Amino acid sequence: MNTTRIIVIAKEPIPGFAKTRLIPALGEDATAALADRLLQHALSQALAADLGPVELCVAPHRDATYWKKHLQNGNVTLTQQAEGDLGVRMMLAAEQGLQHGCPVMLIGTDCPGLNARRLRALAEALSRHDACLGPVSDGGYALLGLHQAHPLLFTDMPWSTPDVARLTRERLQQLGWRWAECETLWDVDEPDDLIRLKADYPELAEYPELAGEPS
């Protein structure tokens, strides 16, 4: 399989900073703990896919002590997210990653179903297409794979709305690009998602605050 660079777009799981929509259900500390577990899971799956370099593109500060533990085995590189909205941050991450001479797949940290097997399948599809997409049930996407970065895919996009995946498909069509998709997955964004997380991925929901359904 051709080399593919996986870029994990990640926030440091600081209480009050990461996964803020879950705070009403869990509180700041438990939400940060869950964000940490989801990040660890996403990174482990990216490494297990064994597709090529794995990059953590992080916010708010690349030099935070938290990130140092991920660099100990030498299999992960660390870069700083740019300033700006999600589109700006993703586009610059893609542009920088593509400079290494291989396609990139941008992923988040909140879709536990985006496992190593799916990452490998999407990378294989990307080798035969201009792009690939990992849609999620809330209308967004958890993965975008590219051979080149085009501003149309990142500019004036209503991020965190149900229109993101649809508009991304429309813009891929406008570019005349061929793309592949995996089945629709789901991510952990809202309190109701915690119920499904506990049922499908109990190893990620082992905190006391998740012992029952969220209130």
Results as ranks from 00 to 15, higher is better:
Gly145Cys: 05
Asn73Trp: 06
Leu167Glu: 08
Ile107Phe: 01
Pro135Tyr: 01
His147Leu: 09
Gly212Phe: 03
Ile107Met: 11
Phe154Trp: 08
Pro60Ala: 04
Ala93Asp: 03
Gly140Trp: 00
Asp193Cys: 11
Gly140Glu: 13
Ala149Glu: 02
Leu167Cys: 04
Glu183His: 09
Asn73Thr: 14
Arg89Lys: 15
Gly108Asp: 15
Leu26Trp: 06
Glu190Asn: 08
Ser44Trp: 04
Gln148Tyr: 03
Ala82Gln: 12
Asn73Gln: 15
Cys132Ser: 12
Tyr201Met: 08
Asp85Gln: 11
Trp67Lys: 12
Glu83Pro: 00
Gly74Gln: 10
Ala10Met: 09
Leu122Gly: 01
Leu47Ala: 05
Leu144Thr: 09
Leu126Ile: 10
Leu204Cys: 09
Thr20Lys: 14
Gln40Arg: 15
Glu190Gly: 00
Val188Tyr: 04
Gln99Phe: 01
Arg117Thr: 15
Ile23Gln: 10
Ala123Lys: 07
Ala211His: 00
Ala205Leu: 12
Thr161Asp: 07
Val188Gly: 02
Thr161Met: 06
Asp189Gln: 11
Pro135Thr: 07
Asp36Pro: 04
Ile23Cys: 04
Gln45Thr: 09
Ala180Leu: 06
Glu124Asn: 05
Val76Ala: 06
Arg169Ser: 06
Asn2Ser: 14
Lys68Pro: 01
Gly113Phe: 00
Gly87Asp: 04
Phe154Lys: 03
Ile9Thr: 12
Asn73Tyr: 04
Pro53Phe: 00
Pro24Leu: 06
Trp67Met: 08
Asp138Trp: 01
Ala33Gln: 12
Thr4Ile: 15
Trp177Tyr: 10
Glu181Thr: 11
Gln80Asp: 04
Leu143Val: 12
Arg118Thr: 14
Phe17Ser: 06
Leu39Tyr: 05
Leu133Gly: 05
Val8Lys: 08
Gly140Asp: 07
Ala59Phe: 02
Gly87Glu: 02
Asp63Asn: 13
Leu194Thr: 08
Glu181Gln: 09
Glu12Arg: 13
Ala149Asn: 05
Ile9Ala: 07
Arg118Tyr: 00
Asp130Tyr: 02
Asn75Met: 10
Gln96Trp: 03
Asp36Ala: 14
Ala142Thr: 13
Arg62Gln: 13
Ile6Glu: 11
Ala199Lys: 13
Gly52Trp: 01
Ile6Asn: 12
Leu204Pro: 05
Gly87Val: 07
Val58Ser: 03
Gly145Lys: 08
Arg37Ala: 15
Ala180Val: 09
Phe17Glu: 10
Cys57Asn: 15
Ala64Val: 00
Gln80Phe: 00
Glu55Leu: 01
Ala125Asn: 09
Pro13Met: 12
Leu146Phe: 09
Asp138Val: 08
Asp50Gln: 10
Arg128Lys: 11
His70Lys: 00
Asp163Lys: 11
Ile107Thr: 14
